[in-house]
Design a protein around this nucleic acid. Structure first.
Lengths: 186, 204
DNA sequence: AAATTACTTTATAAAGC
DNA sequence: GCTTTAAAAAGTAATTT
């Protein structure tokens, strides 16, 4: 059988950084092609990169949030593009500002169907949130690693809240062993 | 010192008035939903617990009242869907759901998932279905749920499909629209659940 | 009636209301 | 709390064709 760990796929990486310099977003919005800036709606300017695909939120403080990347490498590549674009606008940007990964969203597949009702009871109602009227996924909060897993009837799952790719692997291992202990897998 | 006294009295009065308002709202919504007095009492107890645990802060009284009533219906095994509860509340469905999850978590209510069978009596009486249809619907729900078909599915849609299927099997046909209306789900949902259910039941 | 679009849930940073 | 951004999971709903 396929190891569920081998089905792990990073779907989204969120990271933050900053150029340590105040920005006039109004003028950046004018000069930067494709920039979306509506301060009435949101204080950040939205700039999308194509390769790799991502969305960067640029703030007046010079802090930047990058979302939508498929890997940590893509985050760095996307932000390198953003930094270069800002330099083209005569804005000073250091060589390599510190980039901090804040959240990684991962998907995986346990390979067999799950009885979510049984899992909700088995794992303990106090740790689980399962309200199929509101959402088809069962919400399972783990302490170690500190992530949140969404389990679906198909056996597919989503893991979010992790800061490193290994967090998802550890989470999958724990989920698999807990379900096996309860005899709820297979 | 006198001011402090007045303030305390003022906040105490305000608190009393808020509690009265919450309880009268629970009463109003409970009447509109047609649930028995026992449900209102359970809802009141849950609301007072939420009040004691200071869970109301930052939330609307109406939202908490509605959520407590939703909790009470489920605990008394005569659930109302969020859709139905939202229909008699001035709070939108999304907020009722969020407030409900928050209260259930904070009060450690350990709510079990709603059993679709609990919707059968009410939906069937609204459809004037026979006892035979009800029994058949329950059988379909139990059998298909054991086969894993219930995972992730809405209890109302699951119950509605089973009732629709049972009506056909008992020669008391109801249209999908009729069943959809009483269950407050779409015909598409009934169709989808119905197909899966008759497949695993081996009914042809 | 089938296809498309859209919304529900989870986490996360950013600045400001 | 909310606002915006991205992405997955699967169910449900509202529109469009």
């Amino acid at each position: 059988m396929t190891d569920p760990k081998d089905t792990i796929n990073i779907e989204n990486v969120v990271a933050s950084t900053g150029i340590g310099q105040e920005l006039d977003l109004q003028s950046v919005a004018m000069d930067l092609e494709g920039a979306d800036y509506d301060p009435e709606q949101f204080p950040g300017l939205v700039y999308r990169t194509q390769n790799p695909k991502s969305a960067a939120l640029i703030f007046r403080s010079g802090k930047i949030v990058c979302t939508g990347a498929k890997s940590t490498d893509d985050v760095h590549e996307s932000l390198r593009i953003v930094f270069d674009k800002l330099r083209e606008l005569q804005i000073q940007v250091n060589e390599d500002p510190e980039i901090v990964v804040q959240n990684i969203v991962t998907s995986a597949d346990l390979g067999r169907n799950l009885n979510l009702n049984a899992i909700a009871i088995g794992l303990g109602l106090e740790n689980i949130e399962y309200e199929p009227e509101q959402f088809p996924g069962l919400v399972y909060r783990l302490d170690e690693p500190e992530v949140v897993a969404l389990l679906f009837g198909s056996g597919k799952l989503v893991i979010t809240g992790g800061k490193k790719p290994e967090d998802a692997e550890h989470a999958v291992d724990k989920i698999v062993s807990r379900l096996e202990d309860l005899g709820l897998l297979e | 010192r006198l001011r402090k006294w007045q303030e305390r009295i003022r906040t105490k009065d305000a608190g009393e008035r808020n509690l009265q308002f919450a309880l009268s709202e629970i009463d109003r919504m409970a009447s509109a939903l047609g649930v028995p007095r026992s449900v209102r009492e359970v809802a009141s107890v849950v609301y007072r617990r939420a009040l004691n645990e200071d869970l109301i802060r930052g939330r609307s009284i109406e939202g908490v009242s509605t959520s407590c009533l939703y909790v009470a219906c489920r605990q008394e095994s005569i659930p109302r869907s969020l859709e139905e509860v939202a229909d008699v509340s001035r709070v939108e469905k999304k907020e009722i759901g969020r407030t409900y999850r928050y209260i259930a978590q904070e009060l450690s209510l350990e709510m079990k998932p709603v059993d679709p069978k609990e919707y059968v009596p009410r939906f069937c009486s609204a459809l004037d279905s026979s006892e035979e249809v009800q029994a058949k619907a329950r059988e379909i729900i139990d059998t298909t749920a054991e086969e894993g078909l219930l995972s992730g599915k809405s209890p109302t849609g699951f119950a509605a499909a089973a009732i629709y299927a049972a009506s056909l099997l008992c020669n008391e046909k109801k249209t999908q629209r009729e069943v959809a209306d009483v269950a407050q789900v779409t015909e598409v949902t009934i169709r989808n659940r119905y197909q899966e259910q008759i497949e695993t039941m081996g009914i042809h």
